[in-house]
Computed example of a mutant assay.
Amino acid sequence: MDAHIKKVYVPMTETGFYILLCLREPNHGYGIVQRVKEMTNEEISLSPGTMYGSLSKMEKDGLIVFIREEEKRKIYQITDLGIEVLQLELKRIERLYRNVKEIGR
Rank of each mutant, 00 (worst) to 15 (best):
M1T: 03
D2F: 09
A3I: 10
A3W: 06
A3G: 06
H4C: 02
I5C: 03
I5N: 04
I5S: 03
I5M: 02
K6D: 09
V8Y: 02
V8G: 01
Y9G: 01
V10T: 02
V10H: 00
V10W: 01
P11A: 05
P11D: 05
M12D: 00
T13D: 09
T13S: 14
E14I: 07
E14D: 10
E14T: 08
T15I: 08
G16E: 07
F17P: 04
Y18N: 10
I19F: 06
I19K: 00
I19M: 03
I19D: 02
L20W: 06
L20C: 07
L21K: 06
L21G: 10
L21W: 13
R24V: 11
E25C: 14
E25Q: 12
P26W: 15
H28N: 14
G29Y: 09
Y30W: 14
Y30L: 10
Y30T: 09
G31D: 12
G31Y: 15
I32H: 02
I32G: 03
I32K: 00
Q34L: 14
Q34V: 14
R35N: 15
K37M: 15
E38S: 15
E38T: 07
E42S: 15
E43W: 14
I44N: 05
I44M: 14
L46F: 07
L46P: 04
P48D: 02
G49M: 04
G53I: 00
G53A: 02
S54A: 11
L55D: 03
K57F: 00
E59R: 00
E59C: 01
E59K: 04
K60M: 05
K60H: 08
D61W: 00
G62V: 07
G62S: 04
L63C: 05
L63S: 04
I64N: 01
I64C: 01
I64S: 00
V65L: 05
F66L: 10
R68A: 13
R68E: 14
E69F: 12
E70A: 14
E70Q: 11
E71Y: 15
E71C: 13
E71W: 15
E71N: 15
K72V: 12
R73V: 05
K74R: 13
Y76E: 02
Y76G: 01
Q77I: 12
D80N: 13
D80K: 12
D80T: 13
G82A: 05
G82M: 04
E84M: 11
E84H: 10
E84T: 11
Q87H: 13
Q87D: 14
Q87S: 08
L88T: 06
L88R: 07
L88P: 01
E89Q: 09
E89Y: 07
L90D: 12
K91S: 10
K91Y: 15
R92T: 04
R92A: 03
I93C: 05
I93H: 09
I93W: 12
E94R: 08
R95L: 11
R95M: 09
R95H: 07
L96R: 04
Y97E: 07
N99M: 07
N99P: 05
K101E: 06
K101L: 13
I103L: 14
R105H: 12
